[in-house]
Nucleic acid binder design. Structure first.
Length: 704
DNA sequence: TGGGAGTGCTTTTTT
DNA sequence: AGCACTCCCA
């Protein structure tokens, strides 16, 4: 037990061994957050303060949950399998499966992923004859999710105009349809679970008494509903240990409320706030840059990272002529680093938006440098996998209309839009699922759809006693999916993925051992929805890592390149349009990016960049100026330190930053430009006269 | 049924 | 530019 605590620094030790109180751990980047969290659990258990049974540990991603479980098993000799360690969604799913009846759900309820949800909303709009231009499905999904994440049902939704009135009605229709089909979306998992606990006193008491210690990871990312859920569970005297970093809150755009941290501090943690400020990851200059940047944010709980690792190198800054030029610079540097012995996997290229990866990929490919892009299509989101899962879903729950529509005519069985319209009309009339309505259909449609229903029935009979992997295999084969992809030109990879699905089922059965409520199939399908699977592509061992800054959170690399540091891109214009809060979130994003680097950090920008098919002229990001000059090493074209501190000049006579005079507006500075030739326009800041866009062909601008 | 042309969108993303 | 989606025709 004592060696659990060795090698912890003072604040870490304090946090791990806190008495039974609510506490907030402000854990800076690279300060040993996960270590503290897992050691806390291990310490509580090994000192006999709680059994594995009494701990609830919540994370946001499956990866984080897995890591926590793995590290915990390494610390204490217990079986972590039965412990309640998981994601918010995973734990809610577990609870709802255990109490499906009380929650008003069928035993085999299925989980809609975002794509399923969108399909469902589109179908709903179609059935109700609603103009999807006026009510864009995506926007409606967001509307519904945002309400659920605030804990607001359609019945309680605030209506302030006709448009919202309609949207609330659609929200209500959507709820009805989900209930009819026996499916829940991601937000519903949480809300349904919350309502269940709130409504059902014996159940609530049971869990409140059971969980004595509740630990939350990445607390800054919790939304209102998640916070309410935590408070509800902790209402019976459990102690909450919340770990987070307000400076790394980068998910406000999807409902995360940093304010939860302050509220938690005020209402629960009180004086029990511990700051972990010693950073074990980055060299001094990198940390100094991060600290200097984040100081510009007003809304902070306050924290200053330090390290005893030494200053290290300065931050390399490079201003390229174009995005292509920037890509070349980055890739040349990487090639040199790799030549000098830096593992390619330790080099990461980060960008604000995924579209930026293309130029970089192009250049990497051209130079023959292996690379891996994160953020692509995930395994369980592939069409062939979703098709196979849809068949399986129908075996488990025939009322699942989303699954029904996905495969009723795939592979094609001559069931066209006409037949399906009839079917949907019939289903609507008799208020039943599409599957059940098929029997009431007459004519040709009745025959073809009837044949599909019989296919499902036969599949169900044939597989009812098969173990899960064989069931999956049987369905892939007998549904006609396998045959379809065998004849398709580029179906080979899809076939391999389908084989992989059979393997995934086998692994799932092995790992899971005892299968929860609802049987192996339902559990496997839930698993498929909740854990979309790691991006499969390119398991290259020696590959350069490419990802968005968001995707990089929680990771670290020896060498990091932050690219595209230009006004409008990073900080992104859509965010800065949202005022100070938007800009502050962008700055936190930059902070996350900077703190990913261990030894060397590059920051770069380009003067021109292709965006949406046209060249944009760019101004260097304000964030570059927020890094103290003395921490920067400005590079010239060859990647060596430039003689003069100035960034490289652009080609033409007029350039960004140039002071000009205009006959009417007077003296101004060029801040942006776009288009070329006769279309070329520049944006000039005339101070008191404001910002103006001027066409170069007409406006007389004289350099001053 | 399926392919080709036309249209519109485009920040970040986990579950 | 590039992609997803819709629509229309063979």
């Amino acid at each position: 037990m004592s060696d659990l605590l060795t090698n912890l620094n003072v604040p870490q030790l304090q946090a791990v061994t806190l008495p039974p109180v609510h506490s907030l751990i402000l854990a800076g980047a690279g300060s040993g957050k996960t270590r503290v969290l897992t050691t806390r659990i291990a310490w509580l258990m090994s000192t006999g303060q709680v059994g594995p049974h009494g701990v609830l540990a919540v994370t946001f991603t499956n990866k984080a949950a897995r890591e926590m479980t793995a590290r915990l098993s390494a610390l204490v000799p217990i079986n972590t399998r039965g412990m309640w360690i998981g994601t918010f969604h995973g734990l809610c799913n577990r609870l709802l499966r255990a109490h499906y009846r009380e929650a008003g759900l069928p035993q085999t309820f299925q989980i809609l992923d975002s794509a399923d949800q969108l399909a469902m909303v589109k179908r709903l709009l179609k059935n109700l004859n609603i103009d999807d231009q006026k009510y864009p499905p995506r926007e409606l999904c967001h509307f519904i999710n945002a309400h659920k994440e605030q804990g607001v049902r359609a019945a309680q939704a605030e209506v302030y105009d006709n448009y919202t009135q309609k949207r609330v009605e659609l929200y209500s229709e959507y709820e009805t349809q989900c209930n009819r089909e026996g499916v829940v979306d991601f937000a519903e998992l949480l809300l349904r679970c919350y309502e269940l606990l709130q409504r059902n006193e014996p159940l609530r008491k049971h869990y409140q008494e059971r969980f004595r210690y509740i630990l939350v990871d990445e607390f800054q990312d919790t939304n209102k509903l998640q916070y309410a859920w935590l408070k509800l569970l902790a209402g019976g005297g459990a102690r909450v240990f919340a770990v987070g970093d307000d400076d790394q809150s980068i998910y406000a755009f999807r409902g995360a409320e940093v304010g939860n941290m302050r509220e938690f501090e005020r209402d629960w943690a009180g004086d029990n706030v511990i700051r972990l400020e010693q950073n074990y990851r980055s060299h001094g200059n990198i940390l100094a840059a991060a600290n200097a940047l984040i100081k510009h944010n007003r809304e902070r709980l306050g924290k200053n990272l330090w390290t005893d690792a030494g200053a290290g190198e300065r931050i390399r800054a490079f201003e390229a002529y174009s995005d292509l030029d920037e890509a070349r610079f980055v890739i040349d540097e990487i090639r040199e680093l790799v030549r000098d012995g830096v593992p390619a996997t330790q080099c990461a290229i980060l960008y604000r938006s995924n579209a930026q990866s293309r130029v970089l990929e192009h250049e990497l490919f051209a130079k023959g440098v292996p690379y891996k892009v994160y953020g692509g299509l995930r395994f369980f989101e592939r069409q062939e996998i979703k098709h196979a899962l849809a068949y399986l879903r129908l075996l488990g729950n025939a009322d699942d209309d989303t699954a029904f529509l996905r495969v009723v005519n795939f592979p094609t069985r001559g069931i066209g839009a006409r037949s399906l319209e009839n079917l949907q009309a019939t289903a609507h009339q008799i208020n039943s699922s599409l599957y059940n309505a098929a029997a009431s259909l007459s004519g040709k449609a009745g025959q073809t759809v009837g044949a599909f229903v019989r296919l499902i029935e036969v599949l169900r009979q044939e597989t009812v006693n098969l173990p899960l992997p064989e069931m999956v295999e049987h369905v892939i084969e007998k549904s006609g999916l396998a045959q379809h992809y065998r004849t398709e030109k580029e179906g080979q990879e899809r076939l391999e993925n389908l084989d992989e699905l059979i393997n995934a089922a086998a692994t799932f059965v092995d790992d899971e051992g005892t299968i929860g409520e609802g049987g192996a199939l339902a559990s496997f399908l839930a698993h498929a929805s909740l854990e979309a699977g790691e991006h499969q592509a390119g398991e290259g061992q020696e590959a350069v890592q490419l990802m968005s800054v968001h995707a990089a959170k929680g990771l670290e690399f020896d060498v990091v390149f932050i690219t595209g540091l230009e006004q409008g891109l990073f900080p992104h214009e859509n965010s800065t349009a949202q005022g100070r809060e938007g800009l502050e979130e962008e700055r936190r994003l930059m902070y996350v990016a900077v703190t990913r680097a261990r030894k060397r950090l590059y920051v770069s920008c380009a003067q021109t960049r292709m965006l949406h098919g046209q060249t944009r002229y760019c101004v260097p990001s304000a964030f570059l100026e927020e890094i103290p000059e003395n921490l920067l090493l400005k590079l010239n074209k060859k990647g060596e330190a430039a003689a003069a501190p100035a960034l490289s000049p652009s080609g033409g006579g007029l350039r960004i930053g140039q002071t000009v005079e205009h006959g009417r507006f007077g003296i101004g500075v060029i801040v942006a430009s776009e288009g070329r030739g006769a279309d070329a326009r520049v944006q000039v800041n005339f101070g008191g006269s404001g910002l103006k866009w001027l066409a170069l062909e007409y406006a007389k601008l004289t350099p001053v």
